[in-house]
């Protein structure tokens, strides 16, 4: 099968610090993959590199075989936290901006999503939205694009469980079957059912990529798998310090 995302030896340095080290990742068409790791492990940087807004990443990043940054941006829909809009901006104006700027933005799809997620009138201002409502808006905007890859950067961070469930359902309902969806998070119970695969990132490296059902076939939950890998790392660190 065809790989929608293909990363080869991707490394990234910033502020004299390695943030990504030799990341190799291949994600097949239609896959929903969870990008798991602690805060600061490099999840956001990896997403920014794929989306083409982190500069100076080495290695090759291809989306549907396109390596060019502009081509990639056209194929990737990334959850922007909307910081570039002032607090007084009306939702309707943000939607207008998206539909002007992204040729694959579907106003119909946005309407369906926003009706389903139900965050109220589009005459509201950005500054008036609660965290949950703002996340719903971001999800609606991101999924309303007919993109090949959706990058959702911690969409459940600080969101109550009702809202989380609603968002999860919107992801199930509106992700097209060909598109790839990458969801980053540092805890996963709620989204475990959503994932085809998990990729675990730790200390700037991608330490595992595995099919979710394969993990369960071994009688382990994804959480066990994730925590197991994180703990194993701690042990080796201890062993290293013993040897010194």
């Amino acid at each position: 099968m065809e790989n929608t995302i293909e990363l080869k030896n991707v490394s990234y340095k910033r502020n004299q610090r390695v943030i990504l080290e030799n990341i190799n990742l291949a994600v097949q068409k239609g896959t929903t993959i969870g990008l798991l790791g602690e805060n600061g492990a490099g999840k956001t940087t990896l997403m920014r590199s794929i989306a083409g807004i982190a500069k100076g990443a080495r290695g090759t990043i291809k989306i549907k075989n396109e390596a060019g940054i502009v081509e990639r941006k056209a194929l990737v829909s990334y959850t922007d936290s909307l910081d570039g809009f002032s607090r007084g901006t009306k939702i309707a104006d943000i939607v207008e901006f998206y539909s002007l700027v992204y040729t694959d933005f579907s106003n119909d799809k946005y309407r369906e999503l926003s009706d389903f997620l139900d965050f109220g009138s589009d005459q509201q201002k950005l500054g008036e939205l609660s965290k949950g409502m703002k996340e719903k808006l971001v999800i609606s905007l991101t999924l309303a694009r007919r993109a090949s890859v959706y990058l959702l950067d911690e969409p459940f961070e600080g969101i109550d469980s009702m809202t989380r469930k609603k968002i999860v359902n919107s992801l199930i309902q509106w992700k097209s079957s060909e598109a790839v969806m990458v969801i980053s998070d540092h805890y996963i119970t709620e989204i475990a059912g959503l994932l085809d695969e998990v990729a675990i990132i730790k200390d700037d490296k991608l330490i595992a990529q595995e099919k979710a059902e394969k993990i369960r076939e071994q009688g382990k939950s994804i959480e066990d798998f994730y925590e197991g890998l994180y703990e194993k790392g701690v042990q080796t660190d201890d062993e290293l310090s013993k040897n010194e």
Binding site: Q173, L194, D196, E213
Partner: peptide, 17 residues
Amino acid sequence: VRQLALQFSVNTNTVQR
């Protein structure tokens, strides 16, 4: 498939399988 996926809150690929 999509309705089932929504009902179970799982991925459509899983339901398909």
